[in-house]
C-alpha cells in the first residue's frame, strides 16, 4: 500500500503533494478535434475526492496548469509556422504585411479578455466564498478552449 502511494506521488511530481489530480485525463483531450466535453473532467474527478470550495479551486488550478502548458506549446508552434510563411512570402517579393504580428496581437487580446472575464465571473459571487473557485474554473475553461482552438488551427495548417 505504501509503495503504491509512493508511485502515485512520483507520477505527479509537479503538482501539490496531496491533490488527487491526474494530468493524463487532460492530456487525453489534446490535439483532437475540439471536444469541449473534455474540459473540466480532470478537475471534476479531483474535486469528487477532495470536496470543498478550496479543493475545487485547487483541482481547477491543477487542470489549468496542464492546459496552459499545452496552450503555450501550440502558440509557439503557430508563431514558428507563421514566421516561416511570412519569410517565404517576403522572399517571393510579396508586398503583403506579415501575419505574425496579428497572431501576437490576438493572443495578447485573448489574455486581457480572459482575465477581465474571469474577474467578472468572480464578482458575480459578490463577497461569497464561491468567487475564488469560480474564477479558477473560469481561467481553466477559457485557457482550455483557447488551447483547443490553437490546436485545431495548427492541425489545419499542417503543423
Amino acid at each position: 500500500m505504501t509503495r503504491w502511494l509512493a508511485l502515485v506521488l512520483l507520477a505527479t511530481p509537479a503538482l501539490a503533494d496531496d491533490l488527487p489530480f491526474d494530468p493524463a485525463i487532460v492530456e487525453a483531450c489534446f490535439g483532437s478535434a475540439p471536444s469541449a466535453d473534455c474540459i473540466g473532467r480532470a478537475a471534476a474527478a479531483c474535486t469528487a475526492e477532495t470536496g470543498s470550495n478550496v479543493g475545487y479551486a485547487r483541482c481547477n488550478t491543477a487542470e489549468w496548469e496542464v492546459w496552459d502548458a499545452e496552450l503555450n506549446r501550440s502558440y509557439r508552434a503557430l508563431i514558428d509556422l507563421t514566421r516561416a510563411e511570412d519569410a517565404e512570402l517576403k522572399d517571393l517579393g510579396s508586398a503583403l504585411p506579415p501575419t505574425e504580428p496579428t497572431l501576437r496581437a490576438a493572443q495578447r487580446a485573448w489574455v486581457a479578455w480572459r482575465d477581465a472575464q474571469c474577474a467578472y465571473t468572480r464578482s458575480t459571487f459578490g463577497g461569497g466564498t464561491g468567487g475564488g473557485p469560480a474564477e479558477a474554473e473560469c481561467r481553466m475553461r477559457l485557457t482550455a478552449e483557447q488551447a483547443l482552438r490553437l490546436d485545431a488551427e495548427l492541425a489545419g495548417q499542417g503543423g
Binding site: 501575419t99 496579428t102 497572431l103 496581437a105 490576438a106 495578447r108 487580446a109 485573448w110 486581457a112 479578455w113 482575465d115 477581465a116 472575464q117 474577474a119 467578472y120 464578482s123 458575480t124 459578490g126
Partner: peptide, 22 residues
C-alpha cells in the same frame, strides 16, 4: 459586478476584432 461586466465586454470586443483580423 457591473464595473467588471463593462470591462469584460470591452476586452471581449478587442479580442474578437484582433482574433478575426489574425
Amino acid at each position: 459586478a457591473d464595473e467588471r461586466l463593462l470591462a469584460a465586454q470591452r476586452a471581449w470586443i478587442a479580442f474578437r476584432d484582433a482574433d478575426c483580423s489574425a
